[in-house]
């Protein structure tokens, strides 16, 4: 049932193995499936370096530390984020709406459904991680393809116009 890893995907290690929390286990499946399905996402994961903590709003004692190390991703269960560690906290529906793109992260933050703690230095990693974890739905892939075609068409038209203007005596 779980998607198998394909070329470019890096190992996703569940530190506590069979004793891992459901949150860590589901995050591991989610990340593996994301990379297995999209080489672009796998490359994004390889470029990420840093760590953050996911915290469940339903259970305050449950959090998972996720470390992107370039050649591997590790998931550790924890009780609380360490001092200075970037963290993302929300309930199941909020996290689902965030990853599936059904809701805007800034609106979720404004509504206080999503709580994020980070320092300025952690911001690039955090944004990159959220981008990686956002589900590449068929609609989003189609929108990206349309945008690429439109950009290519505009570039060709501009080049043709430039050639016409400069080549005409």
């Amino acid at each position: 049932m779980t998607a198998e890893a394909s070329g470019g995907a890096i190992p996703v290690v569940l530190a506590n193995g069979e004793r891992a929390s459901g949150l860590a286990d589901m995050l591991q499946q989610f990340i593996e499936q994301t990379m297995a399905d999209s080489p672009r996402k796998a490359r994004q994961a390889q470029r990420l370096s840093g760590r953050a903590v996911f915290r469940s709003a339903e259970d305050e004692e449950l959090c998972v530390r996720i470390t992107f190390g370039g050649d591997r991703i590790e998931l550790h269960d924890c009780r609380t984020p360490a001092a200075g560690e970037a963290s993302i906290s929300g309930d199941f529906l909020t996290i689902a709406h965030l990853t599936s793109g059904q809701d805007n992260p800034f609106r979720l933050l404004a509504q206080r459904k999503l709580k994020v703690r980070f320092s300025v230095l952690q911001l690039p990693f955090l944004l990159g991680m959220l981008r990686f974890m956002r589900i590449d739905s068929a609609a989003r892939r189609a929108a990206r393809a349309r945008w690429l075609w439109a950009t290519a068409a505009l570039a060709i038209a501009t080049s043709a116009l430039y050639w016409y203007v400069t080549a005409t005596p």
């Binding site: 929390s21 459901g22 589900i135």
Partner: peptide, 17 residues
């Protein structure tokens, strides 16, 4: 489910969507 008392196996992206 989050604690792991209920184990879930399957397409997590579909579950999120």
């Amino acid at each position: 489910g989050l604690r792991g008392e209920i184990k879930v196996r399957g397409d997590m992206r579909f579950l999120m969507e």
